[in-house]
Nucleic acid binder design. Structure first.
Lengths: 134, 134
DNA sequence: GTTCCTGCAAAAGCTTTGCAGAAGA
DNA sequence: TCTTCTGCAAAGCTTTTGCAGGAAC
């Protein structure tokens, strides 16, 4: 909790109750939620919370590097407070998104020419164990 | 041209003029166009062409494996007639999408457990040589 | 006082769906 | 005939923007 406030201040983000709630939700639910999911989950506790605030908060978290923005399917942006390098797997049947990790020194393809790479994203699609066996 | 017709028939797709035009556009323009880009480009030649047809055609091409569906940014689906394994790089400044290739035997992270992987996507973001030097 | 933040309402952008007519098998 | 395909219009969803009031610094 303390840490969240400190991280916010470090990035010139005011630790408003709404922002704290969104960040806390991401930390407690590492399920790569969408903005809508977060909004729906937090609404009962923050009756006046608006989607606008959720969207803006998530964008801020992404800009400051406090969260990752994940795009696997069009039309749904997901967020992840785990900003370490890791991949994502989306089950095409149940829609759930799983993490998968790899060593820090894992070789990634190089690019020819003078490209400046800022983000690397890796995602797979397929069937999760549960859906596969059904 | 002949090949396109044959590929279509192989997958039970009728080679309508509209579909041929979309497929041909993808082959001639390996620039990962969006549905809108394709629609805009083809409209002059097919005055009655509708977005619906473009969207449906692209979906069909994806389902039959004749094209790849690429999602990097939310809100824009891109398509690529090159269905070989390769990565994509999107320049955050100019928006252009570049291909990058890697050896067929390039090691990709493994997943623990009984996941059935159907698609692997790799994309980078950053600055392209032109935008970097500007 | 000035800047940042919230949230309502509206707009925007991309994609999908319903449906009727046309074309092909 | 029966299935597939096209395309107009409308709807659907997610996300963004304009703006006014409020809070923090």
């Amino acid at each position: 909790m303390e840490t969240i406030v400190q991280n916010f201040k470090k990035h010139d983000l005011r630790p408003s109750p709404q922002r704290m709630a969104v960040m806390k939700f991401l930390l407690v639910h590492p399920t790569h939620p969408t903005a809508e999911t977060i909004y729906t989950a937090l609404s009962p506790g923050y009756p006046t919370l608006s989607r606008t605030t959720v969207y803006q908060t998530l964008e801020k978290l992404y800009e400051t590097g406090l969260a990752q923005k994940i795009v696997i399917e069009d039309g749904e942006m997901r967020f992840d407070a785990d900003t370490s390098d890791h991949g994502h797997f989306k089950c095409v049947t149940c829609g759930e998104v799983f993490d998968f990790f790899y060593p820090a020194n894992h070789p990634f393809p190089e690019m020819e020419g003078a490209f400046e790479i800022q983000e690397k994203h890796l995602y797979y699609k397929g069937l999760c164990p549960t859906c596969k066996s059904t």
